[in-house]
Amino acid sequence: MTQRAPAMFISHGSPMFAVEPGQAGALLTGFGEQFSDVVSVLVISPHWMTRGLELMSAAQPETLHDFGGFPRELYQLQFDAPGSSEIAAQVKAVLENQGIAVGLNAQRGRDHGAWVPMLHLLPDTDLPVFQLSLDMTMDAEALIKLGKALLPLRDQGIAVIASGGLTHNLYEICAPGSPPAEYVQRFQGWVREQVSNRNLSALALPQRYSDDFQRAHPTAEHYLPLLIAMGASDANDHLSVLEGGILHGVLSMESYGWT
């Protein structure tokens, strides 16, 4: 492996993103060209939350349709990339060597926070794609530390993708085509600035440094993967800002890639 595998934070939006790729989907597909030398993909999603870390180790993870009330076509979609118990064991060893305990889970399937964006990023992949759970007991500092523990995997050809949402206020969803809410635009701009400047202290305490955080994230689980992505990247990386737009007035689809 001569080049680091990418790290990413992906805003995965609504499950409808699977069949309505739009601007964000096209940008992910384009960024997928950076994965030519990757041997495996590790995804963290807020739709698999646990107490203590768990690592998917199934050889062929199931495609979970963990949502309700959407068109029938969504429930027929499958993401058929394999898993890998061997690479899962490799990741487990890397984390435990750095003092981070993690259990293996051979039953867990891939949730939509993982497979929906992967449909656009690597639609025809035969690479193993597996998940690490989001540990709800970890605070911001621990999540950044976890990301830093995952960083060495990139030098082994394992891409690290943290999937969530730059904004995620589902209470304020508007009709398709609605203009972006001002607070969403402000918060998106604030996050982009902190990410560009690698201001981890501000990103770890957004409720202190941004007046818009609480409204953008009534609950924080879709924001927290960004902290893991920041830890899994460093100042040697090239940052790509994927400006995916703002859907339904309030859902920022902005993503970040580090190569």
Rank of each mutant, 00 (worst) to 15 (best):
Y171Q: 15
L132I: 15
R4K: 15
G245E: 04
D135I: 07
G109A: 04
P46L: 05
L227D: 06
D111A: 03
R198A: 04
Q34E: 15
E182S: 14
A159L: 06
P46H: 06
S36V: 11
G99W: 00
Q156W: 03
R186H: 12
H248K: 13
T259G: 12
L95R: 07
F17Q: 14
M1Q: 12
I100H: 03
L132F: 01
G244W: 07
L53D: 10
V191H: 00
Y256N: 11
M8S: 12
F187L: 10
L150I: 06
Y183T: 07
L226A: 10
A24V: 06
G245L: 05
V195T: 09
L27F: 02
P15M: 06
L104F: 00
P15T: 11
L143E: 12
S84A: 05
S178F: 01
T137C: 03
A58V: 04
H65N: 08
S36W: 01
M138G: 01
V94Y: 00
F79W: 09
L151M: 14
H248W: 11
A88Q: 07
G165D: 12
Q90S: 14
A181F: 00
G164P: 10
L151V: 08
Q107M: 09
A5L: 07
G165R: 10
A114Q: 08
L74I: 09
M118W: 05
G83D: 01
L242E: 13
F67W: 07
D111K: 05
G103I: 01
L227Y: 04
G113P: 05
D237S: 12
G22L: 06
G164D: 04
S36C: 06
A7D: 05
R208G: 00
E96N: 05
I158C: 04
L153R: 09
N197H: 12
Q34I: 02
H238C: 13
I144E: 15
E33R: 15
L27Q: 15
L146V: 09
R215S: 03
L28T: 11
R215T: 13
A204D: 05
L200F: 06
D212F: 01
V39A: 11
V19S: 08
A89T: 14
L132T: 10
G83C: 01
G249E: 03
W190I: 09
L239Y: 02
H112C: 06
I144M: 15
A24E: 07
Y183F: 15
I173E: 01
A93P: 00
H238Y: 09
A7I: 12
P176W: 02
R192L: 12
G245V: 06
G164W: 01
L119H: 13
D212K: 05
F9C: 10
E221N: 09
T29S: 15
D37A: 14
I161L: 14
L200H: 13
